[in-house]
Every structure is written in C-alpha cells, then in structure tokens.
Computed example of a mutant assay.
Amino acid sequence: MRINVNDREYAVEVDGNPSLLEVLREQLDLTGTKYGCGEAACGACKVLINGTPTPSCITPATAAQGKNIITIEGLEKEGELHPVQKVLMEEDVFQCSYCAPGMILTAVALLENRQQLSEQEIIEGMNGNICRCCTYPKIVSALSKITHKDKA
C-alpha cells in the first residue's frame, strides 16, 4: 500500500491490519507521534489527516491510503518551525512534552481557518488532548497570543 506522509509518498506493508501509528513509528521511523492510551482518549497519537486531527492509534493504516497525513515532523518547513510550535516554545509551555505532538497538531488544525478565538473556544478546540503535567493554562495562554496578536 502507498500512503502520503508529510508531502512524501511511501510504500508500506499492512499485513495484520496495523494501526497508522504502528506504520508511522515502526515502518517510517516517524517517532514524534506517541502511543498514549491506545483508545483515542488522550491525544498523544494525533496526526492530521486531510487537515483533521485524528487519533492514529485506532486508525487502520489502510484508512489513510489516498489521504494527506501530517505528523509533527512535517510541520517544520525550510528550517522554520510552525507558528504554533514557536509560541509554545517561547512560552515554555510543556514540561515532559509527551503530549506535545498531539497538542500541537490539534492546535494547528484549530487555528488553521480562525484568526480570532476566545479562550473558551481554544479550551473546547483542544478538548481530547490530555497533559499529565497539567499545563493547560499555559497552553491556552500561549495559543491566545497567536489568535490575538493583531490586537496587541
């Protein structure tokens, strides 16, 4: 089977119906996507599939065929971090960073078509991503800086 990941075409084996997460980590060596709960409840494994945050732990690899998949490794362009990555680093948001890939990709999708978001909209949009270090207030604050940068 062939899949498109981070704007690159790959041939992968799908014997035994592996999850997209397994294929990304074990066959493509894209280990930024993390295994968390295995039940799509924590968000650590989220990738963007056609721009939508999707839990790769429960998504069969075969379901990704013909779709555009973006992992955390695919956000950097020409040596530049994505604005979401930049603000979260500048604000020193994460502690252990295990949740960071899923959080970042969810935030990228949330902010893709919205220039202005309230804190409540950010909270609701980030729902489904668990941070065991409980840095939620810092995450919301940092993302608010992106959505309100034109008002400053």
Rank of each mutant, 00 (worst) to 15 (best):
I130Q: 04
V87N: 06
P60N: 08
Y35D: 12
I146D: 02
C42I: 07
A152C: 14
V14D: 13
N4W: 10
T54N: 01
K46F: 12
I58W: 04
S19R: 06
L143V: 07
K149Y: 04
A63M: 08
R25P: 14
T59F: 03
C131Y: 00
D29G: 11
L24N: 09
I146K: 05
G102W: 10
R25D: 00
I72N: 06
I146E: 09
T135P: 02
C133K: 00
K67P: 13
K145E: 08
E13N: 15
E76K: 13
L110T: 07
E9W: 02
K77C: 09
G51S: 03
I104C: 07
A11W: 13
S141V: 00
R2A: 12
G38I: 09
V108F: 14
Q120P: 14
L110N: 08
A152E: 15
V84Q: 06
P55L: 04
V140I: 05
R2K: 15
Y35V: 11
C134Y: 14
K86L: 11
H82E: 04
T62Y: 14
S56G: 08
I139F: 02
L30N: 06
C42N: 03
M126A: 05
K46A: 10
E73T: 03
K77G: 04
L81H: 13
S118D: 11
K34L: 01
K138I: 02
L21C: 07
D150F: 15
G16T: 03
I104K: 03
E9I: 06
I130D: 12
L24T: 12
V12P: 04
P83F: 02
P55M: 05
H148Q: 13
A41V: 15
N127M: 13
L143I: 02
N127D: 15
Q95P: 01
R2P: 07
E76P: 11
E124A: 15
V12H: 01
L48C: 02
S118A: 09
S97M: 08
C42R: 05
C131I: 00
A100T: 12
S144R: 09
I139R: 05
A61W: 04
G102M: 01
K145Q: 14
H148L: 08
G128H: 00
T71E: 03
G32M: 14
G79K: 09
R2Q: 12
L143E: 05
I49H: 11
C42H: 03
E73H: 08
E26W: 12
S118N: 07
I122T: 07
G125Q: 01
I3N: 00
L110I: 08
K46L: 13
V23K: 09
A100V: 05
R132N: 11
L28D: 07
L75V: 11
K77P: 08
V108W: 03
L143W: 08
E121N: 13
S19D: 02
A107Q: 10
R114Q: 15
E73C: 09
A109I: 03
G38S: 05
R114T: 08
Q95K: 10
N129V: 06
V23S: 07
A61S: 13
V47G: 02
Q116F: 15
K151P: 09
